[in-house]
Design a binder for these strands. Sequence first.
DNA 1: TCCGGCGCTGACTTTCGAGTCAACGAGGGG
DNA 2: CCCCTCGTTGACTCGAAAGTCAGCGCCGGA
Lengths: 229, 229
Amino acid sequence: MAGTKASTAAEARDQDRRKTILRAAVEVFARKGYHGCRIADVAREAGVAYGLVYHYFKNKEELLQLVFETGWGGFMSRIRDAAEASAPLEQKIHRIAQVAFEAYRIDPRGVRVLVLEFARSPSTGEANRRTAFAEVLGVITRMFERARARGELRAGLEPALCAAMLFGSVEMSLTGFVMGLLDPRDSGLLAHAQEQLTSLFLDGARATPEDGRWKKDRSGPRLKPVRRS
Amino acid sequence: MAGTKASTAAEARDQDRRKTILRAAVEVFARKGYHGCRIADVAREAGVAYGLVYHYFKNKEELLQLVFETGWGGFMSRIRDAAEASAPLEQKIHRIAQVAFEAYRIDPRGVRVLVLEFARSPSTGEANRRTAFAEVLGVITRMFERARARGELRAGLEPALCAAMLFGSVEMSLTGFVMGLLDPRDSGLLAHAQEQLTSLFLDGARATPEDGRWKKDRSGPRLKPVRRS
DNA sequence: TCCGGCGCTGACTTTCGAGTCAACGAGGGG
DNA sequence: CCCCTCGTTGACTCGAAAGTCAGCGCCGGA
């Protein structure tokens, strides 16, 4: 049917426009932050008229909401896949780290928006961010609960706190990269990051006996004399 | 001298006023976030006239800047004390966790502002946060560098990444509490948190041999068959 | 070629809050 | 007791940005 075909084509063009504007919004948002993100800038970035933004989106709120949901949804589903896979804890953690750093490698700008703007600024008031954090932390908490049930988690560790620590480690590492406090070009630091994150989280930062000359006893005395430099 | 005494008294009253307004600003900021934080609200909260705020502070920017600096400065100096003490790594990490959770226990509202709102203003907000993060991460990175030099850090760990992971763990745990995703009343979770943070960071999440029935070998095969539930 | 609809335009209106300032009055000195 | 100073007040100004809308012109069909 010609009518159907035409309307389909029209709809496709509509979707293209929407995506153009959405991408422009990510761009501006990443560059200028929440406060500096004016609809006028988004329109200019997208190369369309000011009013058109309001033809495709109800208001600024909805637009930014969508920017967030798109990005977060993608990230979240990968995290969920990783956390809910049937694999050893070690592998799951490794995959979570991989998802995060891979996302940064592919789209630093998008990660910037998620990590710096949405994670730390009130967009829809607070509900959004709260929901988002609750979502990841919930998924990861359940992962640790299952790991504990299987005996993969060291005794005495609270799954919810493990989740906060794991996700916090990931998020702050990404923040470091995004802010330029950690340089991804430094000796493949980015690649190293996901390995170290997994390794440190699973086995800790403490020197092992073979690292140094002293034997370390985990259950030994807490205070060990240390020479000042 | 009477003149001096009078001017001193006047200055003291001035400082009181300033502090009243500053405290009101923290309050409103914590309650409504950056967007909802209007000078009118701060004035009402402090019980003074709108215009008086501008008698004591140059503008909104300066006021919020000061709110941030006050809180962050206190937090930062405690973190610095902990990180630069001459003590074993274990103790330093424990103290860092302690500083953070203690701060939350004493002043959840203040922590809320630092953790969630983090002075963001159009022009200098970004720079601020960047500086603040660079500052903590720098201090903690140096702590890990010294630990590495002393052989207290497991081989192959990048100090800067350790710093990001440690601070990220602290920050996300606090975020969990502040957002109500972690309930401090749940079986003393708050008290538990600082112990677990130290323990997990130093020794990892992996089950130790004595945790389960299987022997776990750290350098063993990465993939271990796990029964699906 | 002409017509009619609609995607698109951008100037205009509205809203809102930061920052100003003229005036008020408490209180201390003359 | 009066006046003058200065902390204090809050109505007002001004600018910025969100959101509206009347109309333009492109394009597809007759």
